[in-house]
Design a protein around this nucleic acid. Structure first.
Lengths: 352, 352
DNA sequence: TTGAAAGCGCTAACAC
DNA sequence: GTGTTAGCGCTTTCAA
């Protein structure tokens, strides 16, 4: 591969200015269309730009204090479908606004967090979208202090007192509904596999579960609640424990679909059948959920829409720095498929 | 949200220079450690940088002609798990090299392609990774002409004559093996659902299928080959057509897992059973493949590893522009799960 | 309304 | 080895 010649046929505003017969600050003006430029000159500049195929140089623009039209997305890793769905929404929204996306993954960095944020904010991006676990407060504080445009996705922020721009799903409500559904089906003993409890969403889902039990007059049996981590293997283990209980649950509510898959595996490995012997319900509705057997009943989280909303909000902060802090909650939805039915003792024997 | 003050506590090399008591080009030198700097001064500079929390400004560096340590990834969209797997590999590899990732999606842009490439190459990134369909030759030509570091993933490039840096899987071989497997199981009529034929990988898989038939002395029945597009709905439709044939196939080979899912759906909707009545085999081995029922037998494509290899190759071109053009082929692997068995007439009736 | 000029932070000759 | 200097392409005062 021969030498890379970066500045190959680079057209600068200087070239455009010459072509259009104006000064090059005039070109800059039409580029940013802030100040008024006479219609005539603007016209000439535009034509010259088109003719020469001018493409703005982001670095220069940024260095000089302008916008880059790039938004940063900070995630822990790319391990799951979950983040893919969110990204899809973000990307679509950004595309419409002619913004580009810069992806940062944190999973491997040992860097001091606030220094890392410095790097992000000083480099390239006009704003930052964050999909992070609960303990990432250092990031957020730095961002807040710097008044750097940012929006959290699926994260409640530092504390309940400080309002941080964010987009979430109705996790509590979703879990409440899922639990109620199981209750209505006649289940009395419902196992619960938590998510990674350092995540706000995991906490909220647990709360929803508890609230539903309480509202239905059922006591909380601590044995039925197992601490998971949103991952399949732990879902498997928790379910094994649950099934080994003297009085095992007739239904299991997993805090996310991956855990639910683990649960399904564990159930099958015990030669039990879903939903005949035990009902399973998940959370998220990732693409796989519809494909497993039986199809998983789950609480749909509007991930793509959350991404869109977050991007939209961030763009607002970028263009209107004074815009008020918003916290957006998007509704979850119970998706009933085939992994739940009334418990054994309520079912007529002959059913297929 | 109050005003964004971008240059908040920005420490420049100038500050570092002052702190270390050296000239600021010396700081630049240790930053890029190209030329030699006396151990003593280097030490002082390093200490000053740490103390001040210096973070390099990418824009400035880039503007001045240096590296940005950012690699661009150009994809059509984020619709599928497929791209997620590749990204995972890329990201991991890049992280190790302290490179960041910039994501570009093309699906929506009407821009003249070569102008778009200009934008990409002139902006921010040191090199470009491309996951694109076959007809994206304009991009590639521009890149080649500019000698801008780039690597294609899962794409053969412009033509067979021009060697383009790329990383692929052994699509032909993988399809050959899958077909052979079905043949060995005793299937004589094997339906084939192609991918989007504008993609090189789709062509290669079709070739592998044909080659296997030929090598086993079987004629190619055009009725058995249906043009799909790598998407589930089309997989469904193709399978319906296949099943409606006077002499329907006993096995179907779908060019990717999504199509295979569509095929499974169609089979089920006909009240046929997999694999008892008909065998299904896919390609890719996306995460869902193991979860469907029955688990899908498929050809594993090492997507993550392909991402890693591509990133590695690109980094090589970035640091060694003269490195020879490489085309890397990574092996596919037949993953036997539960969706295939010998055809009906070969199976003893009593089997479960 | 428009042009001139001063940087933004950094790299890379160029001298010493 | 190390300091000096000239830009990289652009935005933004400041005059005119």
């Amino acid at each position: 591969m021969p030498d890379q010649s970066r500045h190959f046929d680079d057209i600068t505003i200087f070239d455009v200015a010459k072509e259009a017969g104006v000064s090059y600050s005039t070109v800059s003006r039409v580029l940013n269309n802030k100040t008024y430029v006479s219609a005539d000159k603007r016209e000439r500049v535009l034509r010259a730009m088109a003719q020469l195929g001018y493409v703005a140089n982001i670095q220069a623009r940024s260095l000089a204090g302008g916008r880059t039209n790039i938004v940063g997305l900070l995630v822990r890793g790319l391990n799951n479908t979950y983040i893919g769905e969110i990204m899809k929404g973000i990307d679509n929204e950004l595309a419409q606004a002619h913004y580009d996306l810069m992806l940062y993954t944190t999973h491997r960095r040992k860097t001091k967090e606030s220094a890392y944020v410095t790097k992000l904010t000083r480099n390239v991006v006009d704003g930052l979208l964050l999909v992070l676990p609960r303990n990432a407060d250092a990031y957020i504080e730095t961002l807040q202090r710097r008044h750097f445009p940012h929006v959290l996705v699926d994260h409640e922020g530092i504390s309940h007192n400080i309002l941080v721009p964010s987009v979430e799903a109705t996790n509590r409500k979703g879990a409440y509904e899922a639990t109620s559904y199981l209750l209505q089906l006649g289940h009395q003993r419902i196992g619960f596999i938590t998510g990674k409890l350092e995540m706000g969403s995991a906490q909220h889902r647990l709360e929803g579960y508890k609230a539903a039990l309480q509202d239905h007059g059922l006591p909380l049996d601590p044995d039925l609640v197992r601490e998971g981590d949103f991952l399949q293997p732990q879902g498997y283990t928790c379910t094994q424990e649950l099934l080994a209980l003297p009085d095992p649950p007739t239904a299991i509510f997993a805090s996310n679909d991956f855990s639910a898959f683990g649960a399904m595996e564990a159930v099958r490995d015990q030669n039990l059948h879903i939903p005949q012997d035990i009902s399973i319900i998940g959370f998220d509705d990732i693409p796989q959920a519809a494909h497993v057997h039986p199809p998983l009943t789950t609480v749909r989280q509007p991930l793509e829409e959350m991404g869109r909303a977050a991007a939209r909000l961030l763009l607002k902060y970028i263009s209107l720095p004074e815009a008020p802090v918003e916290r957006i909650e998007l509704p979850t939805e119970l998706i009933i498929r085939g992994s739940c039915r009334p418990p054994h003792h309520l079912t007529s024997k002959g059913e297929p």
